[in-house]
Amino acid sequence: MHTPALLLRTLPALALGCAALGARAAAPEGWIVSPDGTWVVDERARLAWARCVEGMRWTGSTCAGQPELFTHGEAQARARQRGQAEGLRWRLPRVPELKRLAAQQAVPLPGAPQQWHWTGTASVNAARVNPYAYDNVARGGMGESRLSAPQGWAVDMGSGEARGDVGRGARLPLRLVRPAP
Rank of each mutant, 00 (worst) to 15 (best):
W90F: 06
V177H: 11
G169P: 05
G164D: 15
A149L: 10
E97Q: 14
S123F: 01
V41Q: 07
V95W: 04
Q66D: 09
A154S: 15
L16M: 11
V33W: 00
G158N: 11
P150K: 10
C63L: 05
P28F: 01
A122S: 11
A25W: 07
M1Y: 07
D135E: 13
G83C: 07
N130H: 06
G152E: 12
V107D: 01
L21G: 15
A48D: 05
Q115Y: 00
G141C: 04
N130A: 11
G158K: 03
W116P: 12
V137P: 01
P150L: 09
Y134D: 06
R51S: 09
A27F: 00
E68N: 12
R128K: 13
G37S: 09
H72D: 13
P4N: 11
M157N: 03
A162P: 13
R178T: 11
R91S: 15
W90K: 06
L172M: 05
L69F: 02
L8H: 11
L176H: 06
T62Y: 03
A23D: 10
E97K: 02
A79G: 11
Q76G: 15
V177I: 09
A138C: 08
A106V: 03
P110L: 03
G167W: 05
R51F: 00
W153H: 14
S159R: 03
G140D: 03
V129R: 04
T71H: 08
L8E: 14
G143R: 00
P12S: 13
M142Y: 03
T3M: 02
G73S: 15
A103N: 06
T3G: 15
T119N: 07
G65Y: 03
E29F: 02
G120M: 00
V33K: 01
R163H: 10
A154E: 09
W90L: 02
Q84C: 07
P108F: 02
A106N: 10
R91W: 00
W90P: 13
A79D: 08
W58V: 12
